[in-house]
Nucleic acid binder design. Structure first.
Length: 195
DNA sequence: CGGCCGATCCACT
DNA sequence: GTGGATCGGCCGA
């Protein structure tokens, strides 16, 4: 079943990020569903987090989406060519977000492979934040600000749980310029081999 | 308006 | 292990 609104409203974005491991992420465009199990996430803790786009309470056209109510998609362009998909959490005006960094394909594998221009038997064709969005067909120009309660992009809880021993925790990727905040253990991923 | 830079990926060495 | 691709957002002038 789809994740309830209450899940997205939780105040602890780090707990939310950890909790999203094992949840399912789906997209449905042009009638075809693609998606799978979330295997890697990172928490971005809003105004007090130097690695967050909303650090210091910055509000711009781009970051405005992060101030939406939890349960909204924040999709932005990275390095000029990759759409990165985030789940906005917490109540309106608190710009928390969870970056989805890895997906284990479960449905629509053929279409996902086709979008990636890879063979369906390929491994790891949705294993990074950029490739994951390509595989799911998510694009910053089309899907930023979309509600996760809608028919195009949504998350489901299928009662898959990981043991603490199956989860790795560590510092986030690509945030070296965030000073002390770059060291925070806000990255969570399912150990290789578990799935 | 100009310049810098980024929550990345892949081909190539 | 390294560097190029590629362009919107942001900031300072």
């Amino acid at each position: 079943m789809k994740l309830k609104k209450g899940y997205y409203l939780q105040e602890d974005v780090v707990a939310a990020a950890r909790g999203l491991l094992g949840k399912f992420l789906f997209t449905k465009f042009n009638g075809t569903v693609t998606g799978g199990i979330i295997t890697e996430t990172e928490a971005y803790a809003g105004v007090i987090d130097k690695a967050s786009h909303a650090f210091g309470g910055r509000r711009t056209n781009r970051t405005e989406i992060m101030y939406s109510e939890g349960g909204t998609a924040y999709v932005y362009l990275c390095y000029g060519m990759y759409s990165l998909f985030n789940v906005v959490t917490n109540k309106k005006d608190i710009p928390h977000a969870v970056l989805i960094r890895g997906l284990h394909p479960m449905e629509g594998r053929d279409l996902m492979a086709q979008r990636r221009k890879l063979h369906p038997d390929s491994k790891n064709f949705s294993a990074g934040p950029g490739t994951l969005s390509i595989a799911l067909g998510i694009h910053f120009a089309d899907h930023n600000g979309l509600s996760l309660a809608g028919p195009e992009i949504w998350l489901e809880d299928r009662k898959l749980e990981f043991l603490p021993s199956q989860i790795l925790t560590g510092p986030r990727v690509g945030v070296d310029s965030a000073g002390k905040d770059a060291l925070l253990p806000y990255r969570f991923r399912v150990k290789p081999g578990v799935l």
